[in-house]
Nucleic acid binder design. Structure first.
Lengths: 366, 366
DNA sequence: TTGACCTAGACAAACGATTGTCTTGTGTTA
DNA sequence: TAACACAAGACAATCGTTTGTCTAGGTCAA
C-alpha cells in the first residue's frame, strides 16, 4: 500500500483507528490536506488541486498524474468543504425552510429536494420554522452568514419583508408550493387541476351536492384548490353555494371541526372534497363520531396521496400529487436560475386519482 | 446614521436593495467583511473581531468600542461562518441521519435536536438514508469534508464498519434511539418501562391473554420493548408463550400483516401491545378488516404518542415517550462530551399512558 | 545560435476570520 | 530623567483551497 517514496506520511493512514486522543475536543485526528498529498507526490499543491478538478489549463505528464492520484488514494484525501467554499464563494449547500417536520406533505417535499441536491453534489439544510418567529429568525440569520447558496421557502411562514431582507443580502430564494403577491419566484403544483380531478370523480359517481372543506384563507394552495372545486362544479352545471364550503386548516383537528360544522348544516352534502389529506383524517374521524357512514352516506376525497391514506378506515380516496418532484424541481430551479430572474412554474403531470374505499355512488334516496 | 469620518463605505449600506445585478450568478451583493467594518471604524480588523467576541485580552477605550459597534450596526455586518469555521476548526454544525422523513417518530426527534442545536447557536443538517446505501454513502462522504462537528445516528442503518470509518476520520458520533454491540455511545428511551407501562394498563383492565406485535428482530428498541412486555407479564403471573408474539416492522403495512397473523391463531388474544404507533395503525386496519371490534374484542395499545393517534378510529391508547427530549439530549451530549468518551444514557421521565378509546376491559366471555 | 514557443509545473495571492505577538505612546516611579 | 509598566491597538501568520500568472528547461525553425 505505502509506496517507498514516502517522506511525511502521517501515521494516521493506517487502518486501525487511533482513538486514544482524549485531549483535543474537536478533530481528534488531524485531517489530510492538499499539502500532505502534494508533498507525498512531490508536486505543488496547486497541481493536486488541478488534477482533482480536471483543470484544462494544467499540462501534466501522465506519469505525474498517476503519482498524484496514487497519493490521494493512499492518504484517503478529501477536500475541506469549508476552505473550498470560502475560496469559490459557493457553499454547495441549499437551505429549505418548512413549517413543521411532523407534516408528511413536507416530508415528501424534503425527500425530493434532498435527492435533487445529492444529484448535484450539494447538501441540503432543512430547518423548521414552527409557530415561533424566533426560530425563523435564527434560520434566516444563520443563512445570512454565507452558509447556503440559496433558500427554498416551503409553507406559509415568510412574509414580504423577509424576502426583501434576503434580496438585500443577495441570497437567492424560491417559494415552494406557495405564491405571494409581489414575489415572482415560485414553483407550485397544479392544485386547481388536482381539485378538479377529485370533483369530477365524485360527479362521475353521481354526486351533486359536493361540499368543500377548504384550507386556510391566506393559503395560496387553498385558494387554488377552491377554484378547482368551483370550476369543476360549474362545468357540470352544479351549484357552488357558500354554505357548501367550510374553511379549515391543514390539520386533522381542523378537518374534524370543519366536518362537524358541515354535517350539522341543513342540507347535508353526499360528498366532500377535503383540501388536504391531513385534514381528511379529521373528516373521517368526525363522520364516524357523528354516526355518518363513509362512503355510504358521505364520500370523502382528499388532495395529496400518502402511505397513510391507504391504512385509514375506510381507506381514503385521494389525488396523488408529485410532491417529491416539486421538491426536486425546486432545487433544480434554484440552482440553475439567476438570482433575480423570475421563476414561475407549475410542476406538471403525475396527477392521478387513487380510488380507495372512501368514495362510492350516493345513496339512492335523494 | 453615517458618521462624518467615513472613508471607504461601500454604497451598499443604503436600505434600498440593489437588485439589478444580473451578471454575478451567486452572491449578487458583495458581503460586508471585517475589513469593511474596521476601515469604517478606523481600526484594525483584529480589533473588530475581538470586540465582537469579547476577547478579554483586548484593551480598548469605551469610545473606540462604541465606534466599532456602530460600524457593525451601520453595515449590518455578520461574520462569514465558513471563514470562521476554517480558522477555528469548529463548524458549529451537527449532522443527523435518519432513515426516512416520512416517519413521524423521527420527526419528533428532529424537532428536539433542532431546538437544542439552535439553543447552542449551532445548525443542524438532517439527511435521510432511506433504503439505498448510496444515499448513506453520500452523507457520510459529505460529513467527512469538515462540514460537521459531530454526527447523530438515529435509526437502524449504520453498521459497525461505518462507525469505525467515522472514528478513523475523527468525527464524533452518537447513536440515537438505538444501541449496537461494541458501540458505547448511545442515548435511548426507557423502552422497557414504556412497554411495561402499557402492559400493566391492560392487566389493570383485566386482560390476561396479551399479545405482542414486536418490532424487527435486529432493532434494539424492539428487543427492549419485548423484554418490557415479558417482564410485566411475568410479574403479574401471566404466561408469555411464543405464539403470543409476532415479529413485524415499524410500518402500518407490517403491523397489519402481523395482526392478521395473530388474529388467525387458535387462541385469540384479548389485547395486544404494538411496539410502535405506526404499526398500530396497521393493527387497527387489520382488525377492522377481520371484523374484530376494537376495543370490545381486542384492546390495542402502542408505544409512542403522536397527534395522529388521537384522530384514528378508534382513537389509539398509547404510551407517550419523550422523543423530543431524546433528540435534544442527543445534541447536548454530542456537543459536550469528548469524542472518545463513552456515552450511555437512558433519557428519563415523561413516560405516561395516554388512555383513549382503543383499550377497554375484555369481554365477559372467556 | 538565437529567438520563439511549448511543456510541465511552481509561485503566490486571494477568500474572511481568529489569535499570538509586537509596537507605540503615555504615565509612573525611582 | 532614565527605566519601566501599562494601555490601546497594530501586525501578521494561519486555516485549506483555488486560480491567475511565472519560470525553467527543452525543442524547433530561421
Amino acid at each position: 500500500m505505502t509506496p517507498p517514496t514516502e517522506t511525511k506520511t502521517p501515521a494516521r493512514a493506517t487502518t486501525t483507528a487511533t482513538t486514544k486522543t482524549t485531549k483535543t475536543p474537536a478533530q481528534a485526528t488531524k485531517a489530510v490536506t492538499l499539502l500532505d498529498v502534494a508533498t507525498r507526490a512531490g508536486v505543488d499543491r496547486s497541481v493536486v488541486s488541478r488534477v482533482l478538478r480536471d483543470d484544462p489549463r494544467l499540462n501534466i505528464r501522465e506519469e505525474t498524474r498517476e503519482r498524484v492520484l496514487e497519493a490521494v488514494r493512499a492518504l484517503d484525501y478529501r477536500p475541506n468543504a469549508l476552505a473550498r467554499s470560502l475560496r469559490t464563494r459557493r457553499a454547495d449547500t441549499y437551505g429549505l425552510l418548512i413549517p413543521d417536520f411532523g407534516n408528511p406533505v413536507y416530508a415528501s417535499i424534503i425527500q425530493g429536494a434532498e435527492s435533487a441536491a445529492i444529484a448535484r453534489d450539494c447538501v441540503l439544510m432543512t430547518g423548521s420554522v414552527g409557530a415561533g418567529a424566533e426560530q425563523a429568525a435564527h434560520h434566516l440569520d444563520v443563512i445570512g452568514r454565507g452558509r447556503v447558496d440559496g433558500l427554498l421557502l416551503a409553507g406559509d411562514h415568510t412574509d414580504r419583508a423577509q424576502l426583501d431582507e434576503l434580496d438585500r443580502r443577495g441570497i437567492p430564494w424560491l417559494l415552494v408550493n406557495r405564491r405571494l403577491p409581489r414575489a415572482r419566484r415560485w414553483v407550485v403544483l397544479d392544485d386547481e387541476e388536482a381539485a378538479g380531478l377529485a370533483v369530477r370523480h365524485l360527479i362521475g359517481l353521481g354526486h351533486e351536492r359536493i361540499a368543500h372543506v377548504a384550507g386556510p384563507r391566506d393559503a395560496d394552495t387553498a385558494r387554488r384548490r377552491m377554484r378547482g372545486w368551483r370550476t369543476a362544479m360549474r362545468a357540470a352545471g352544479l351549484a357552488t353555494p357558500a354554505r357548501a364550503v367550510v374553511v379549515s386548516d391543514y390539520t386533522p383537528e381542523g378537518g374534524a371541526r370543519a366536518t362537524r360544522e358541515l354535517l350539522a348544516r341543513a342540507e347535508r352534502p353526499t360528498a366532500v372534497l377535503v383540501a388536504n389529506v391531513a385534514a381528511a383524517i379529521g373528516t373521517l374521524s368526525a363522520a364516524a363520531e357523528a354516526g355518518v357512514r363513509v362512503p355510504e352516506e358521505l364520500s370523502v376525497v382528499a388532495v395529496h396521496d400518502l402511505p397513510l391514506a391507504a391504512v385509514l378506515r375506510p381507506a381514503l380516496t385521494t389525488v396523488r400529487t408529485p410532491l417529491e418532484r416539486l421538491g426536486a424541481r425546486a432545487i433544480e430551479l434554484l440552482a440553475s436560475t439567476a438570482p433575480d430572474a423570475p421563476i414561475e412554474e407549475v410542476v406538471d403531470g403525475e396527477l392521478e386519482l387513487v380510488e380507495r374505499a372512501s368514495t362510492a355512488p350516493p345513496a339512492a334516496s335523494s
